[in-house]
Design a protein around this nucleic acid. Sequence first.
RNA 1: GUCCCGUUCGUCUAGCCAGGUCAGGACACCGGGUUUUCAUCCCGGCAACAGGGGUUCGAAUCCCCUACGGGACGCCA
Length: 503
Amino acid sequence: MNMPVRTRIAPSPTGAPHVGTAYMALFNLAFARKNGGQMILRIEDTDQSRSSNESETAIMESLQWLGIEWDEGPDKDGKFGPYRQSERKNIHAQHVQILRDKGHAYPCFCTANRLKDVRSEQMAKKETPRYDGHCLHLSQEEVENKITAGEKFVIRLKVPTDGECCFTDELRGEVKIDWKQIDHQILQKSDGYPTYHLANVVDDHLMRITHVIRGEEWISSTPKHVLLYKYFDWDTPIFAHLPLLRNPDKSKLSKRKNPTGINYYRDAGFLPEVISNYLGTMGYTLPDQREIFSIEELTQSFDIRRVSLGGPIFDLAKLKWLNGRYLREKLSEKEVVERMIDWKINSGFIQKIIPHALQRLENFSDFMPLSGFLFQDYPELELSSLIGKFDASDASKLIKTCEWELEKLAPWNRHQICKLFQNLAEKEDKKLKEILPLFFQVISGESVSLPLFDSIEILGPDLARLRLRKALEFLTSEGFGLSKKGLKSLEKDYRQKYGDRID
RNA sequence: GUCCCGUUCGUCUAGCCAGGUCAGGACACCGGGUUUUCAUCCCGGCAACAGGGGUUCGAAUCCCCUACGGGACGCCA
């Protein structure tokens, strides 16, 4: 019997839509379509504390913006729903029970502190850190007593004590990992929700996923998944681990070093079809090596075996060049105008600006010089105007602190932004008036411009945050950046004054 | 630290699976031409098989070792 090819993209709704998600989605889509199958979108929201509806919506909208379409998902019902893992909690719990009944999983009562100690001890002894099996040997009676006493517990996966796990990666061939390297993975958290590993395997099976195409970061936990399929007595899907997108320094693509938000590219004025085209060139070339192609063209000739395994660096310069070619070659002048109107050259956007610009206008021609920075990717900076009365290294610290704060800001509106800066001034023991000129410069590149908080709101999170980063980069290039040590002590300081969370 | 994955111009890559063309294209960069400037466009240039050992008449291509890079090691995904 030939099963229809089904792939899936399984984002976690815990933040802004990420280009890495789009990258994986694109290849999953191309593969499924090429083979006459379907791609499904499944929301992996098993982390109750971090998942949000806003993020889920934003991710779906961003993928749609890029022209990536799924055949089944939370908004598009199919035969295998629901497509949101939080709505499948019972299904997961039942499957955890099956494993417990079969003796493949067991409850564990260890505290976070004990686990931490065990881990550091193992690291010190140069062993691979993993659960030591402390609760594995608890008797039935002990377990029941602890549970009735109301002790919190998790469910762990039993892992073979010796031998090795061998699985096939479609792109890399046989991969072998010692079972000794594999942790007794938690399958169900103490809040009753499953972890990724359990939910992922159960849902992939139930949703008839035939090919798991995902990031390289998952290779080392694949044995856990293989083991789960075996314990459930299910066929394993075919695995293909794609390389990870990289920063220019080759580390995994991260927002500290590169814009990673899909919305950044939208707000900075890139065409969605250029983004998906460019992502399609990451680790992949069409057989005829053409570099301008649509998702449909990518799909038509798609061959997953052509994926090259070295981690591709996301190169903004080439992306810009590609966008320029689309503007000149793929669109008519009329279309370019239309697309610009869709972007920001429209009355809706200008209306947002007018209330703040009006007091400063004498004639219309004053408008563009005043508000031009709201249409820019980022402004050019000049050292002495940027730092003003500040010491340059103090400015770096302040900007970095503000970046961390802005990273956590939600919802993104004037009121919250205002509060953020008031708080910043207070915590830094400065007057609001003293710190604002710096941020006027960071955001607008000008000393005369529109009101700061409104400008930041209009700019949106992706562009605003980028400007802080650009300012920091600029200060670094001028020799006033934060040293590694300085950053570390600033971070410590920050956690004390502003709370432990850094996004 | 342990394990896993990877390694062709600075960057994206073709070629590798089925060993045998000056290792090809694109971005960036440099130079020249077109253009009243700039940009576009055209032409040219720079520039790579990580290192070592095997197998072979012959290795970027197959095998082994080393180095380097990355990832994973969470009650995150």
